[in-house]
Design a protein around this nucleic acid. Structure first.
Lengths: 240, 240
DNA sequence: GCGGGCTTTCCGGAAAATGGAAGCTGTTAG
DNA sequence: CTAACAGCTTCCATTTTCCGGAAAGCCCGC
């Protein structure tokens, strides 16, 4: 049963990157001896490693494997220079994300020099409904996914989070027709994000880029052309 | 037996990111039915996924997990802006790598605009003995690792690759005293790389940065101060 | 519509995982 | 100094689970 072994790896997260055997066993809800044996096997293969204190952590081998994951063909590498440009010009937070199922997965994130602290993390997940990138990805997701998301209760993060399905539908329609999305204080009350689509050579939306700025510092509509242009530039580079 | 399941994941590599069931079974040397069942379990968990054609590939979930791997605390994120700077200034290839066992693992790589094509890849591995980053990492590795590497036959890539242990020892000593390493046409006959160490707050070398340029375009000694400075800047940023 | 390659399902035998318990190690307290 | 403790590692009999051959689907291209 491999699922059990994978539960162990699930025990790791951004806050807890290094765990003791007992913590792992507790979090994965299995006897210590079992956890111990499984971890030894993972160690032997390089999926996890132990630091000098004996704590377990995710191994480089797993990172290598993960870097083979298809986040578009070379998406991150291609997009990186454009994201840096955006970051240099605006000095704000830039994010690159893809959709997986009914969630956003953040693929790259560049922290602006004097920007709002933002709670997402590379490799992190978030609901599709609240963020700038999420709205873009949802707006261009298969109908099935949209129905699934809009049909389920929608997480609220702030007083501004839009949780009404019909209002969301309108926002998605706007996003499609405008070519950019706006998430105004939907995630935290002091931030606002503007997202734009990134398309493959066939025009299908495969990722999204966004700027996250402090609410009030700039208007969303001032940022939109910048983000849109960036998304288009990345799309073009991907097709080349 | 988890090792068997992991062998299956090993079948993926940079060239073969999407594989059929039969290919996977063949490469991992196991019966189709076994491979099939294991892959189903992996799919259920998100470690692998299937594209529209039914081909298997590494899943985003695995990428997420991998991004928790300790490549130094925030090494990649911290170093990225400095690497971009180097790349902008020189328009050459910039690489960031760590050591794992007796190999180099490339953690980040920025392709210069008009630079030599370089055969390494983010997430890729290479011998410690040939590259600029490798020499730095080997020069500051525990004695045990050095003996292990220098005591085994050393891979040759070009006519220039240094394979003589005593000559390598001298190069490592130079690397330590100079604060940078030079790999002159040791990997390919048209490239040269200059590496410098990145240290943690205790002064221990945890990573290396390098510039890879076309042989003859610049002298290594002209690049060295640039790379060294960059390495030191990253070290400082890491300690902050 | 038929042949070949690929994928999926099934099931009895066999092998490998399980987890309780006991021994170990290093740490803190008395 | 040693005793209690918490976490780590090893052991082994039990039994669950995985293994993989075989056969049945499923698609294509011919």
């Amino acid at each position: 049963m491999i699922g059990r072994a994978l539960r162990l790896l699930d025990a790791f997260d951004a806050e807890r990157r290094e765990l003791t055997l007992s913590e792992l066993a507790r979090r994965a809800d299995m006897p210590l001896s079992t956890a111990h044996r499984l971890l030894n096997e993972f160690c032997a293969w390089g999926a996890v490693e132990r630091n000098d204190k004996g704590l377990y952590r995710i191994g480089l081998r797993l990172w290598e494997l993960g870097s083979l994951a298809p986040r578009g063909p070379g998406l991150r590498e291609t997009a990186l220079p454009f994201l840096e440009d955006l970051s240099l010009i605006t000095r704000e937070n830039v994010q690159l994300a893809v959709r997986e199922g009914t969630e956003v997965v953040f693929v790259e994130r560049i922290a602006g020099s004097g920007a709002v602290p933002v709670l997402t993390r590379v490799g992190g997940r978030f609901a599709l409904t609240a963020t700038g990138v999420g709205l873009v990805l949802l707006a261009h997701a298969p109908a099935e996914v949209q129905e699934d998301v809009l049909g389920s209760p929608i997480d609220r993060y702030t007083a501004n989070t839009v949780t009404d399905p019909s209002r969301l539908r309108r926002m998605l329609a706007d996003t499609r027709s405008n070519g950019f999305s706006i998430s105004d204080r939907q995630v935290t009350m002091d931030s606002l994000s503007v997202g734009a689509p990134i398309r493959d050579r066939h025009g299908a939306v495969i990722a999204a880029v966004s700027l996250v700025v402090r609410h009030g510092s700039t208007t969303a509509h001032a940022l939109a052309p910048l983000v849109r242009t960036s998304g288009q530039a990345i799309s073009r580079a991907l097709s080349a």
